[in-house]
C-alpha cells in the first residue's frame, strides 16, 4: 500500500516539482498553428507517449530505478540520455526540471536527494528529469512499475495542464482528454513489461514535429513556458 500512496503523492500536481514551467512542446506546437482542441491534444499526447516517452523517459526511469544509489551508473544513464536528446530546448528543459525536482526533494529530506543535487551542482551529473525521478522515486518507496506509471502520467498531465494555461483548451475538456489517454498509458506499461535487459542502447525516439516545435519555440519573442 505504501507504494500506491507514494505514487499518488508524486503524481499530485500540487507537488512542487518545477514542472509548471515546461510545456514540453505544447506552446511551440500552438505557435505552429497545430490544432490543440480535445481531439488534437489527444493526438499529441498519444504521439508523445508512444514515440518519445516509451523509448526515452520510460527507459531512463527504469534504468535509474534499477541503479538506485549507484551514482556512477546514474551519471552514465544521464549522459547517454543527453546524447539521445537532439533538441537543445528539450535537453535544457529536462535538466532544469530535474534540478527543480531534486531541490524539492532535498528540502523535504528525501533520502539521496541532497547528495544527487550536489552531484548535479558539481557537474558530475547532468540531472535529467527521468534519471533523477527513477533514483528518487525508489527512495520514496514507489515500486518500479509505479515509477513508470507516475512518469507517463506526469508527462501527459503536464502537457494537458500547459494547454489549459495557454487557453488552448478548457479545463474540463483537458481532463476528458487526459482520461481518454489512460488506456494508452496502461497499454504502453503493459508492453514495457519488466524492463529486464534494457540498456542505454535502447534509447530511441522519433518525434520530428515535436522537436521542430521546441526548437522554434526557443527563438520566440514571447513565451509563457521554458520549452
Amino acid at each position: 500500500m505504501l507504494s500506491l500512496f507514494a505514487t499518488l503523492w508524486q503524481a499530485d500536481s500540487a507537488f512542487p516539482n518545477g514542472g509548471f514551467a515546461f510545456s514540453n512542446g505544447i506552446e511551440g506546437l500552438a505557435e505552429l498553428g497545430e490544432r490543440l482542441d480535445g481531439v488534437g491534444l489527444a493526438d499529441v499526447l498519444a504521439m508523445t507517449l508512444t514515440h518519445r516517452w516509451m523509448g526515452m523517459d520510460r527507459i531512463a526511469v527504469s534504468l535509474a530505478f534499477a541503479a538506485g544509489e549507484d551514482e556512477a551508473r546514474l551519471a552514465e544513464i544521464d549522459r547517454r540520455l543527453d546524447t539521445a536528446t537532439l533538441s537543445a530546448p528539450q535537453r535544457t528543459g529536462s535538466r532544469r526540471n530535474g534540478l527543480a525536482f531534486l531541490t524539492a526533494h532535498a528540502r523535504i529530506g528525501t533520502r539521496t536527494a541532497a547528495e544527487l543535487k550536489k552531484q548535479v551542482e558539481r557537474r558530475h551529473m547532468l540531472g535529467h528529469l527521468p534519471v533523477v525521478q527513477g533514483a528518487i522515486w525508489r527512495a520514496c518507496g514507489l515500486d518500479a512499475r509505479s515509477a513508470l506509471a507516475a512518469s507517463a502520467y506526469g508527462v501527459a498531465a503536464g502537457m494537458a495542464s500547459a494547454a489549459v494555461r495557454l487557453s488552448l483548451i478548457g479545463a474540463v475538456e483537458a481532463q476528458r482528454c487526459l482520461g481518454a489517454t489512460l488506456p494508452l498509458l496502461a497499454r504502453l506499461l503493459e508492453e514495457a513489461g519488466s524492463g529486464d535487459g534494457l540498456t542505454c542502447d535502447h534509447f530511441e525516439s522519433l518525434t520530428p514535429m515535436l522537436d521542430i516545435a521546441t526548437m522554434r519555440h526557443a527563438t520566440s519573442d514571447v513565451r509563457l513556458f521554458s520549452n
Binding site: 493526438d43 504521439m47 508512444t50 547517454r80 546524447t83 539521445a84 515535436l210
Partner: peptide, 28 residues
C-alpha cells in the same frame, strides 16, 4: 565515446495516422 545517438522507429500506419509524429506532414 558516444556523442550523438539519434535512433527511432515507426510503422507506416503510425507515419500516416492522426497521431503521427510528423503532424500533418508526410515526408521527413
Amino acid at each position: 565515446r558516444i556523442l550523438v545517438w539519434d535512433r527511432g522507429g515507426i510503422s507506416g500506419a503510425q507515419f500516416a495516422g492522426s497521431a503521427s509524429p510528423l503532424g500533418p506532414y508526410r515526408a521527413m
